[in-house]
Amino acid sequence: MRVVRSIPIRRSRRAWAALLVALALCLLAPTSASARGSDAPLLECTGTVKQTYTPGLHVLPRFVTYRGTIEYSNCVGDVEITSATYRETLEYFASCTANGGPSEATIRWNNGQASELKVVGVEADVVGNVQVFTSVGKVVSGRYSGHAVNIITALPKLSSLADCLTPSGLTEVQGSSTLTIVGL
Rank of each mutant, 00 (worst) to 15 (best):
R2Y: 06
V4F: 09
R5P: 01
S6R: 14
I7V: 14
P8L: 06
R10H: 05
R10G: 13
S12F: 13
R13M: 12
R14Y: 04
A15E: 11
A22C: 07
L23N: 01
A24T: 14
L27E: 05
L27S: 02
L28N: 08
L28T: 14
T31K: 15
S32F: 05
S32P: 03
A33N: 05
S34L: 13
A35L: 12
D39C: 03
D39K: 12
D39W: 06
D39G: 14
A40I: 02
P41D: 08
L42R: 13
G47L: 07
G47D: 07
G47E: 05
G47W: 08
K50Y: 00
T52P: 03
T54E: 12
P55C: 09
G56W: 08
G56I: 06
L57H: 08
T65Y: 04
T65P: 01
T69D: 07
N74F: 07
N74S: 15
N74Q: 14
C75I: 07
C75Y: 06
C75T: 09
C75K: 04
G77R: 08
I81F: 04
T82S: 13
T82C: 00
R87C: 02
R87K: 11
R87A: 03
T89F: 02
T89M: 07
L90F: 01
L90S: 09
E91D: 12
E91G: 12
E91T: 15
C96V: 05
T97F: 15
N99V: 11
G101D: 02
P102D: 09
S103D: 11
A105K: 11
I107A: 03
I107P: 03
W109T: 01
W109L: 04
N110H: 06
N111D: 15
G112K: 10
A114S: 15
K118F: 07
V120E: 11
E123M: 07
A124H: 12
A124K: 15
D125I: 01
D125S: 13
V126F: 02
V130D: 10
Q131F: 09
T134V: 15
S135W: 00
S135H: 10
V136S: 15
V139I: 15
R143H: 09
Y144V: 04
H147L: 06
H147K: 14
H147A: 12
V149P: 05
I151D: 03
T153L: 00
T153A: 10
T153W: 02
A154E: 14
L155P: 02
K157W: 10
S159P: 03
S159D: 13
L161Y: 14
T166V: 03
P167F: 04
S168P: 01
L170T: 10
T171Q: 15
E172T: 11
E172G: 01
Q174P: 03
S177T: 03
T178D: 02
L179I: 07
L179N: 01
T180E: 13
V182C: 00
V182M: 09
G183N: 15
L184F: 06
